Computed example of a mutant assay.
Amino acid sequence: MDSPISEWVVAESSVWLSRVRSTAEPAISTVSDVLCTRLVHDETPQRELLKRSVLRKERSRLLPERDVRAPVPSRRGELFYRWQRRMNCMPRFDARIPEEPLSVLVFGAHFDDCEVRFGGTATKYRELGHEVTLVCMTNGEAGHYKQGGATLAQRRRAEADAAASHIGAEYVAFDNPEGELRPSIDNRNEIIELIREIEPDLVFTHRPNDYHPDHRYTSQLVQDAAYMVTVPNICPQTPHLDYNPVMCYLPDSFEKPYPLDPDVVIDIDGEMETKLDMLHEYTSQMYEWLPYNIGMLDEVPETETERREWLPKRYEPRNRGYADRFREELKDEYGEEHGSQVTYAEAFEHCEYGGDLTEENREILFPFF
């Protein structure tokens, strides 16, 4: 019992024994503080592993009902977050109540990303007379198995314009090589300037954990721009914003480090056909590249009519899955009867780097309920 690790276990036992028999959450909160404090000041690898293991096992024992899908922050992050909140170090802006019409700005990594993840909700905004701007962060020159370069880029840009025309949305495209997007200062500054130019009430983008590097870096770039749009000496050639736009993540099905935890779930039953019409414009993607990439090119019909009838088989299950997965949230939003009957949905998670999403501004920003 004279090893450094054993000494730590003995010394720490008194902490556990004195608190673990009290209510579970206060015990864990207090012990977490002890372990986090030690972890910050003790970089011994063996001790760090032991502390993490002890805390994880004790959390599991004391809180068996914890939702396993919920994110568990790192011990360092947990401690720093508490300290930061206590010291009020996080820059905050008063929750902004926007005026109508709303301005909605959606950042996707590729042509079709916005429509796949946001097409139904974009349609709802436009039906109510709100402004929607779709952004593609790359130039579309790589997503195909036969074409490429400028020819493919021009084709995909034309497809995007045709898709946006179904709802009267604007499309903006950056000239970053597809598959090579970087989270650079130059790219961040371009996003800052665009956000300032558009002056959006709501900004949407990918979540930061995704299979495609362009998706991940789009998310990072937009998040990094969130606060910086308010700093006058950053990109001083464009007037800074006096507010931090509310930011939300687009939906996906990835589970790690945590699954989508939506703050808003929207019924798109009435907009699903328009969404499919928008996707149908992406011939190079819906009927060529993506089927080729997943080994089902031989299933794609030949004629336009047959393809449009085939398209729902590929894309309706995604939005049906969101409706089933977030059924309880739909019931909360629309009531028991309506929420139980929704077939297709899109779901969005608030990003804390943007402006606050409150009960008051939520009703204005998402005027669908």
Rank of each mutant, 00 (worst) to 15 (best):
H280V: 02
Q46R: 03
E141F: 03
L39K: 01
R76M: 15
V72Q: 10
R207D: 03
R47T: 09
A142I: 02
E190T: 12
Y211G: 03
V203W: 14
I364Q: 14
G355H: 05
S29A: 14
E281M: 13
T133D: 07
E255H: 05
S3N: 02
S253Q: 02
S18R: 12
M228D: 11
N244Y: 00
D263G: 08
Y243R: 12
V172K: 08
N209Y: 15
F368E: 02
T138Q: 00
E329R: 11
G120T: 10
E255Y: 05
T151D: 14
A70S: 14
E190C: 13
L50K: 04
F366Y: 13
W289M: 10
C136P: 06
L260I: 13
L276I: 15
R76Y: 13
I167Q: 07
V10F: 10
A173N: 13
I28D: 00
F326N: 02
V342K: 01
S184V: 08
R207T: 05
I5D: 07
I97W: 00
E337W: 00
E360C: 03
V231Q: 09
T238N: 05
V231S: 04
D277S: 10
M278K: 05
E281S: 12
E309F: 02
K313Q: 13
M296T: 11
M296R: 15
A323W: 03
E337G: 00
G168C: 02
A70W: 06
D113L: 02
H212I: 09
D42A: 03
V10Q: 07
T205E: 01
L63F: 05
R216K: 07
M278R: 05
M272F: 14
N187T: 01
H144F: 05
V10L: 12
M228C: 06
Y353V: 14
M90F: 04
F254H: 15
E352T: 07
C89E: 12
R75C: 13
Y334T: 07
E12H: 11
